[in-house]
Design a protein around this nucleic acid. Structure first.
Lengths: 114, 114
DNA sequence: CTCGCGTATGCCTTGACGGGAATATAACCG
DNA sequence: CGGTTATATTCCCGTCAAGGCATACGCGAG
């Protein structure tokens, strides 16, 4: 299960930025380099991680390598998320009851990080 | 953005295991220690990361600290995922057509490794 | 074949992360 | 009060990942 690689790949902010860029449209490496402000080798390495996680595909266009999102792992993430989404709905339901006696967490206030 | 903390927290397999445990039901630390096979300090540190990412809540029950999932970050992840889910649906749709694409002028022939 | 462009890879350093052992803190019990 | 249980925190160390630099590779042009 390449699940681990998927999470590792998305754990990095730069990689998430690249993924966001590729969401708009497929792009060659040079474009990604420019958009992210990273060095070309760094970008290439990030792309390798994304590739090995199955998140992106490459199409070779002359000397250029055009990267594009592969939607499959997204579905995997979605599947992982599903059980928690159920919990989320359940808690929304419980929100109207307010029977919790544990914390004084306010739902309309962002949680203060200590 | 606490977004980063969220991804970082979920990047670790042990922490995902803890989260999965808490999905079933809230648990005190000792139970998590036993279930994960980690040392108590390690577990406590992981719980701290999860806490700071907003993924878990603590309820103090005598000397015990009972940890429970906080559904809010799940919604955040879901929101992040949403645009990609759109892409996923789009690709499923395109799969059924298998026509020449109107948006790309190049003769695309995808069948490399997948 | 040689050059130039675009991209990938290797080496190296640095900094963050994870794990274990020991210790500190907090709460309950007598 | 002291002692015990349950959890958190500190210190130390091994590991791993990220970034920069230099360089190698692949491809097309001449």
């Amino acid at each position: 299960m390449s699940d681990a690689a998927l999470w590792t790949a998305l754990a990095d902010p730069h990689r998430r930025a690249i993924v966001a860029l590729l969401l708009e449209r497929p792009r060659p490496v040079g474009e990604i380099v420019e958009a992210c402000g990273l060095s070309q080798p760094s970008t290439s390495k990030h792309l390798k991680v994304l590739r090995e996680a199955g998140l992106v595909r490459v199409r070779q266009d002359a000397q250029r390598r055009v990267y594009a999102l592969d939607p499959a792992p997204i579905a995997e993430l979605d599947a992982w998320l599903a059980p928690y989404r159920a919990l989320w709905n359940r808690s929304l339901d419980a929100l109207g009851r307010r029977l919790d006696e544990t914390t004084s967490d306010d739902p309309e206030e962002p949680a203060p990080k200590d």
